[in-house]
Design a protein around this nucleic acid. Sequence first.
DNA 1: TTGAAAGCGCTAACAC
DNA 2: GTGTTAGCGCTTTCAA
Lengths: 334, 334
Amino acid sequence: MGITIKDIAKLANVSPSTVSRVISNSPKISQETKEKVYKAMKELNYEPNVIARSLANNSTRILGLILPTSEDDLFENPFFMQAMKGISVYAQKKGYYIMYAFSENEEKELEFIKHYVRSKLVDGIILFTSRQNDKCISYLKNVGHPFVLIGRPEQPNDVLWVDNDNFRAMYNVVDFLVKKGYKDIAFIGGPENLYVTRDRFDGYRKALQTHAISEDDKVVKFAKHFSKQAGYEAMKEILAYKIPQAVVTTDDLLALGATHVLNELGIKGVAMVGFNNTYLAEYQVPSLTSVDINAHKLGEYAAKLLIEKLQKKDMPYTHYIVDTVLVERESTRL
Amino acid sequence: MGITIKDIAKLANVSPSTVSRVISNSPKISQETKEKVYKAMKELNYEPNVIARSLANNSTRILGLILPTSEDDLFENPFFMQAMKGISVYAQKKGYYIMYAFSENEEKELEFIKHYVRSKLVDGIILFTSRQNDKCISYLKNVGHPFVLIGRPEQPNDVLWVDNDNFRAMYNVVDFLVKKGYKDIAFIGGPENLYVTRDRFDGYRKALQTHAISEDDKVVKFAKHFSKQAGYEAMKEILAYKIPQAVVTTDDLLALGATHVLNELGIKGVAMVGFNNTYLAEYQVPSLTSVDINAHKLGEYAAKLLIEKLQKKDMPYTHYIVDTVLVERESTRL
DNA sequence: TTGAAAGCGCTAACAC
DNA sequence: GTGTTAGCGCTTTCAA
């Protein structure tokens, strides 16, 4: 049907293999031959068949993303879209394609990964893994298929991954607040068993220490979910004890819930900080100061690591730490 | 390297073509042969090479999504993610894969589409086209490559597309408000030149007519952007004239801006309705009644149409209208 | 530097 | 029903 390498070869008066060499920009092709071939390609409006190349090369240049379905809230978090865009933009630049799939649960996820790997559809896989995703990771490690994680893994030394420095991010938030004059700072975190929560909590404590502010367990709460409701309840518990000058949280939704309580009770002047800088933060009244985790960059670096790995099989396991940015809004300018 | 059809053939004591027929579930293969082959596949842990199949079949079973980069706000709208999920879920069920790419502008978009088509990478394309995207659409029409649009096209009769019934959706909103006792209802729409705005406006007018409520131009405003700021300004203009009993908008952000004015001025009891049911609506105080456009279904049907087209080349051009749902929250329970 | 030819893994006539 | 064989469009030895 379409134009093939043979048509080009005929028109340019060379052999198909020469055309192939021109396509892959082989160095041992004379300039004039190259130009002849390019001309023929232009003339016939030729573009190589990607699939045929993939088969011959045993490589598709396709990266597969595995997205968790999870609870809708999490899933509609702009984080995913931003990361997907970061991945896509970098990949496009390097001539890679992106495929994605949603998985309902870990079992399905594993199935899909297996399919991707065994059918040779994708050259590498990017996992959006917040939960401890042993099965998939260990499968991929086992079969030795290239992959990269977004989010710090349990064993950080034998996989490729990207993440924020969550310790530092929260440290900076607290430091920022203290320097603004707030001393009595409460903490509302997500589930305590998550790395991300623990790291941020540690950052909180360290910053207090640095500023010689004594910690107070009673203003520290860990919510069971990243929900507004959970933030609401945590804040209520804190208020039952005292009214802090400021509240740091590990998620915008938690911050929203906490703010809600304060509004209900008519308590003014308590500074509030969220995390993830979702657009909920921006469109709140008062708008919410929040930490931008730079999902776009996380995606970009994930793609970068993976593609480097694909091009250098023996690349050492490594990772990227993406900087966060504190976006100040009205909730800390009271 | 890997296991191929030949290995299976050998082990099962049949010819490669028989194995191939088993793979594609050909009806003219005896049950016992099938089982022999399946057994061999299991034993060797075999999975067909998707790329080789694609080459031989001249079909990849890959659908390509073209996503607009556009303004960040729009892009982070959960709409895209929901639609992408709808597409993915349906496609997976039918054994299709999804590839996506972001395009910076129409030019890049066209380039990408051309590449997809000419390199034979994708079997079909899904366009997220809100703007009038002539170049891409006419290219695809020209080359006769299967594609489907999310959003009503200029010429609705020679392409496949899916969309909401925007007229009806807004009609229902107004009808709902009137039945609750609101009569004096203002309208804040997006840019007037968009179909979606016009259709919704028509629905608004029709509903007023139906209930024998006279229209009042002075409570009708069209914003230049879908932004909070634009909603804010439109509402101010309306208030300069009078305080309506209710306000319908064509976007949650517009509704947020409008609500903001009311709060500032301490005006209570004005009902407010948004559109798109983003999670901004849910997490607002008071939470915002909004029309859910069911992006998931839009995606699902887009995939469905496209896949049907791929399987029946001569399928007539048609479209799906996806129902909207009015999600009532506090802003209409005042 | 270029060409001839085998092969990547699977499918689809065509034969039997 | 099943096997034989010639591709699908490109890459890559191996020779020249």
